[in-house]
Every structure is written in structure tokens, then in C-alpha cells.
């Protein structure tokens, strides 16, 4: 019964999302939704390794950057369209993951975290300095993306509107959700969670921990690379800080931490909360709202101060909110919701 309810709810939401671009023409909202999809996919990709296996990588920018760079390099220097380039990115990301896994998974806990950061930084510095391949700090601009054709018919023309990106983003989010669901409902998922809970106990129960961690990393890296390819093509530009910076790694992680690690819906909720929040703070929608509600008058000192400064402080406010969430909802939004429903159930009983 509950499963049927869940499925119905999922299909309703999905239907709404598919119909969304037909109902809402505003490119601003379309863009916002695309960023949400991207964040869902990023968070879910990280979740497989960080959430289920408990290997908290703070270097997922490495795979994100690989996807973005490989796809755009192939597009610009070889005219290979991105729907092929994305797979090349996946292949490279998996190879990188195998190398990183072989080295970093000898380490546990904080040492693994530090090693993951180091690897991403190495990638960022390499991308900055291997000018022949990556065009260095100037980055790569995707000039024109060929339209996707099926025979003679144009399936998606990327130059006219953002709608094709909307559906590809939605598809990517669904893909990562599907993969995470598959992992969670398989031996792999059980083994990854066992490793998260207690490596020694897992080892004694016949789990080859190094091999399973590598499986988790490879899947996570492949999906993260796909999100990187999507981002690169969508933005039409890559340079080292935007796709390989430490803040990219942290951002990916935060989606999952805020939403709830090791849960299927955590990254979804994390993305739905974080992306619009960041956007609202950046565009100073908060001040506009306060003015509209009548809490502050736009001419008053406070109103002027907020108008002047709030959008400059968006990163600071974002940071404070994140800290508050982590302090008061250590298991993320999903964890907090579960606690709430569990309490209610107890009260009913």
C-alpha cells in the first residue's frame, strides 16, 4: 500500500516536471530547474560513495571536471558532439577512479578525505598548467553545439532555447536516482552500508572491502562525470576553478549532507532546498520579500542597508544556514523528517 502510494506520488511529480516547460515559459525558472536537476544528479552520485559506503570524498570535483573537460575538448578540437563526448568522459573518469581508488582506499577516515582533496587539487593544477590540452586558465569556450538529429529530424536544437537542457537534466537526475535505487536494493548496497558502519566487521563477514569500495567509487565517478559533461555543455564554458575547484567538491557534498546521506531522497531534497536558496540570496530576493510583506520599508535605514549588502553577503548567509542545518539536523532533512514522523507515530500509539 505504501509502495503504491509512493509510486503514485512519484509519477505525479514526474508528470508535473515533464509538463513544466510547456506551462512556464520564463527562462529564469527554466534555468533554476536545470540547476536543481544538476544538483540532484551531483548529490546522488556522491551519495553512492559518501552516503551508502561512508567514504566521504571531498574531491568529487575531480570527476566533475574530467566530464566537463573531456566533453568540451572533444567538442572543440575534434568536433565530436557532446552526446558521444559524455561517454568518453565516463571512461576517463572511471580510469581516474580506479587509480585514485587503488591509492586512496588504503587510507581510512580523515586520511581518505585528505587524499581525495589532494587528488582533486592535482587535477585542478594540471588543468591550469597543461595549456596545450586544456587551454590553461583561460578555459575552453564551446562555440556551437551541433543539434541532435534522428535521421533528418532535429530532435534537440541547443541554440534556440533551454528546453532541451531541461529534459536532459531531468533525465540525468532520474538516471542517478535510478542507479542509486538499484544500488540500495542490491548486494552491492548492503555491502557498501556494512563497510560504512564497521569496516572490520564487514571484512570478517566475507566482504572484500577494497573491491567493494572501488565499485562504489567507479559508479559514483561515472555519474559525477556525466553531470560534469552536462554542466560544461549547458554553461558552454569550462575553466579550472569552475569545474575543478575545492568549492565544487564541497558543494556536491553539501547537497547530500543537507538532504540526508545514505538515503534515496536526501540528495533530491538537498538540491531542492539549496539551489533556490543560493539563488534567492544571490539575487537579493530576501530583501524584496521583506519589503513586499511590509516587514521593512524600502526607504528606511534597515531597508537600504539590506538592499545594499544582503546580496554581497549571500555566501556568508548561505554558509551560516548550512552550519545551522548541520548543527540541528545532523542527519539532514530526511533524518529530521523521519524523527518527526516517528515521534508522531509514537504519540498516536
Amino acid at each position: 500500500m505504501r509502495a503504491a502510494l509512493k509510486l503514485t506520488l512519484f509519477l505525479i511529480v514526474l508528470g508535473g516536471l515533464v509538463a513544466f516547460p510547456r506551462m512556464v515559459q520564463s527562462p529564469y525558472f527554466l534555468q533554476l530547474m536545470i540547476l536543481v536537476f544538476l544538483a540532484v544528479a551531483q548529490g546522488q552520485s556522491w551519495n553512492i560513495l559518501g552516503g551508502y559506503a561512508g567514504q566521504h570524498s571531498v574531491g568529487h570535483a575531480a570527476y566533475f571536471g574530467v566530464g566537463a573537460y573531456v566533453t568540451l575538448i572533444l567538442l572543440q578540437s575534434r568536433q565530436i558532439p557532446p552526446w558521444w563526448g559524455i561517454w568518453a568522459g565516463v571512461v576517463v573518469a572511471v580510469i581516474v577512479a580506479l587509480i585514485i581508488g587503488a591509492i586512496c582506499f588504503r587510507l581510512r577516515g580523515p586520511y581518505f578525505v585528505l587524499a581525495s582533496i589532494a587528488v582533486a587539487e592535482i587535477m585542478r593544477l594540471s588543468a591550469t598548467n597543461l595549456k596545450g590540452l586544456t587551454n590553461g586558465a583561460e578555459g575552453i569556450l564551446a562555440t556551437d553545439i551541433p543539434s541532435l538529429r534522428w535521421g533528418e529530424r532535429v530532435v534537440a536544437d541547443f541554440s534556440i532555447s533551454k528546453v532541451p537542457f531541461y529534459y536532459i537534466g531531468l533525465g540525468l537526475a532520474l538516471l542517478t536516482l535510478g542507479v542509486a535505487w538499484g544500488v540500495a536494493h542490491s548486494k552491492l548496497g548492503y555491502y557498501l552500508q556494512a563497510i560504512r558502519e564497521d569496516q572490520d566487521a564487514a571484512h570478517s563477514l566475507g566482504i572484500p572491502i577494497a573491491r567493494y569500495k572501488n565499485y562504489g567509487l567507479m559508479i559514483s565517478a561515472a555519474l559525477t562525470s556525466m553531470t560534469g559533461s552536462f554542466f560544461g555543455v549547458f554553461v558552454g564554458f569550462v575553466d579550472p576553478p569552475t569545474v575543478l575547484g575545492l568549492d565544487v567538491s564541497v558543494q556536491i557534498m553539501l547537497i547530500c549532507i543537507i538532504g540526508g546521506m545514505g538515503t534515496l531522497y536526501g540528495p533530491v531534497l538537498g538540491a531542492v532546498v539549496l539551489v533556490p536558496l543560493a539563488e534567492a540570496l544571490r539575487s537579493n530576493a530576501v530583501t524584496d520579500l521583506l519589503v513586499k510583506v511590509g516587514a521593512v520599508s524600502p526607504e528606511s535605514k534597515v531597508g537600504l542597508f539590506l538592499k545594499e549588502n544582503l546580496s554581497h553577503a549571500h555566501v556568508l548567509i548561505y554558509g551560516i544556514l548550512v552550519v545551522l542545518v548541520i548543527l540541528f539536523m545532523p542527519e539532514g532533512i530526511v533524518g529530521a523528517l523521519r524523527k518527526l514522523t516517528a515521534r508522531r507515530r509514537r504519540e498516536v500509539a
Binding site: D198, D200, A201, A202, L205
Partner: peptide
């Protein structure tokens, strides 16, 4: 050959059934 631990090591955030299932998955 399998051992138990002097200081018990339950996979704390998983259910009792899941714990034993992970053993069975060997």
C-alpha cells in the same frame, strides 16, 4: 571460518535483519 567480536560490532544504523542478511550474502 568466521569470528565474533569481544567488543560487539553491530552495524548500528542497519536493522537486525539487515545485519544478518549481510552475513548471509557471503
Amino acid at each position: 571460518m568466521v569470528r565474533t567480536w569481544q567488543k560487539v560490532r553491530p552495524l548500528a544504523k542497519l536493522s537486525v535483519l539487515d545485519n544478518v542478511m549481510i552475513g548471509a550474502l557471503a
